[in-house]
Amino acid sequence: MTKLRTTTLIAAAAMIVAPTLSLAQDGMARAKERLSAYTSKPEFVAPGEPFDIKQCAAGKKMLSIPNNSANPFLKGIIDRMKTVGDKIGLEVVEWENQGQPSQWVQGFDYAVRDGFDVIDLISGISPDTVEPQIKAANEAGIKVMTSHFYDPSFEPNPLLSSSLPIGFNEIGRILANWITVNTDGKGRVALIVSREVPPTIPLVDGFTEELAENCPDCEIAQEINVGVAEWGTKIQPSVQSALQADPDIDVVVPIYDSMSQFVVPALRLTGKLGQVKVATFNGTPFVLDFIQQGAVSMDIGESLDWIAYATVDGHMRDLCGLPVPDKLNVPFYIFDESNATDAGTPAEFDTGYGDAYVSGFAKLWGLE
């Protein structure tokens, strides 16, 4: 009787474990398949029909206002947009500022006063904070647009002429699938976010949804929310505390890779450097150097030069009355220990992605 009962219990347990194993195996297979799209050199996909961009851009001026000129990522994009502008006859000017809303307002005043045709709010300035200025620009015949700011799921401010969003939700899903594959489906994660930044929300949503679907045994052990202005003072001690309180954490995800400069010292001081995986997003060169040094595991990169071409393309289509792409035509590409040196040593912003976009846009614009 006892033997029969034991056999029955074992059989019942097996029936419970089998579906769980199947779920995990199915999730792993999905994660690997979805991740594969980001591990090959990016290919150029035309964002719309061919058009004569020189005719559209001739004599036109675009003022690009970043949320802060101290951000090398944004400044790098604008510098490259200037170069693209030179090729097509578009004057691109940066409104340099230190991230003060009053300075953004001054940028709008300058654009109206000097007869610009386009104002580009690039990655960080919410149109909601400058609505009176957008109205004034519209009345002066200036088209106001955003780039690299909204997620495609967001409803753009109705005062905008158009918007070129990027897939922040998609980025979250890539991070989740990478963790699934690289922890054998058992990752215990410390997630570092800045919820004050609007794109953080769809990114984290994509991350948590994909992790739940494909990695049932993964767990977000702790979410660390740090405001952008406090990165330098709060990220390192918060990560140290998290690792000391929970030594089973095996992955740290700073969702924006500039956070990594404060994560790496925390790992070093806790003796976890090289043991705890770090997965992140942006492709900033110093973080790609971290990968080469073994301090960071993975970074989802995007070429600044490609962003510049795609931004100019979308804005010129709007300016000339053509359909505008529903998102910024820039692919994501995973850098890890296998290919980080392709970005250069030391790494550079535009190296490692290939140059398919250069000839792609040239043909699309009728330049060759």
Rank of each mutant, 00 (worst) to 15 (best):
A70H: 05
S359T: 13
I77V: 12
V118H: 01
I77L: 06
Y333I: 03
A308Q: 00
T83P: 05
Q261D: 13
M28N: 11
F149N: 03
F116L: 08
E213T: 14
K61E: 04
S162W: 04
L175G: 06
I10K: 09
M298T: 08
A58Y: 05
L267H: 06
I174M: 12
P325N: 05
F51L: 01
V226D: 12
G354S: 13
A212W: 00
Q55M: 09
F335W: 04
A245V: 04
T2L: 09
N71V: 06
G141H: 03
Q222K: 14
N339A: 08
V105P: 05
F262D: 05
L4I: 11
K82Q: 10
Y353I: 04
Y150P: 06
Y357E: 04
Q275K: 15
L23H: 15
W306Q: 02
N225T: 06
S241W: 05
G206Q: 03
R30V: 08
G274N: 05
I122W: 01
K143H: 15
P323K: 13
V296Q: 07
E170A: 07
R80T: 03
G360V: 02
P331R: 09
Y150F: 11
A11K: 11
K143W: 02
C215K: 15
G115C: 13
T351R: 14
F108H: 09
N97D: 11
F361E: 00
L328A: 02
V253E: 06
I307D: 00
F286S: 15
D79N: 11
E302G: 10
M81H: 00
M81C: 00
E223W: 01
K60S: 01
V92C: 03
